[in-house]
């Protein structure tokens, strides 16, 4: 019988659940608020491309925030520096 490290697996499950919920919130923001918005005038030359580019940058920023929160959770739960002395 292979006994896995239950404590670590439980923490990981917690992290995955948190990330999943954050992902749903982020996708909701993107689909309901950011994607329908007209950020740049589409009549400008290449207006639709710039508009798509700005929205892609917003999505990229949200992804970076999402990964940052993931990073913090793993470091706090598993790799926290123990106080010395």
């Amino acid at each position: 019988m292979n006994i896995m490290n239950r404590k670590v697996v439980s923490y990981q499950v917690l992290i995955f659940s948190t990330q999943w919920m954050l992902m749903l919130i982020g996708l909701g923001l993107l689909s309901q608020n950011i994607a329908p918005a007209k950020i740049l005038d589409l009549n400008f030359p290449f207006g639709q491309y710039f508009d798509a580019g700005v929205k892609a940058l917003v999505a990229l920023f949200l992804s970076v925030v999402w990964l940052f929160l993931w990073d913090r959770q793993v470091r706090v739960l598993f790799y926290r520096e123990k106080p010395t002395g």
Partner: peptide
Amino acid sequence: VPLFGGFNLPI
């Protein structure tokens, strides 16, 4: 996308 329909990303 789950819960919120979807969005068109042609580019």
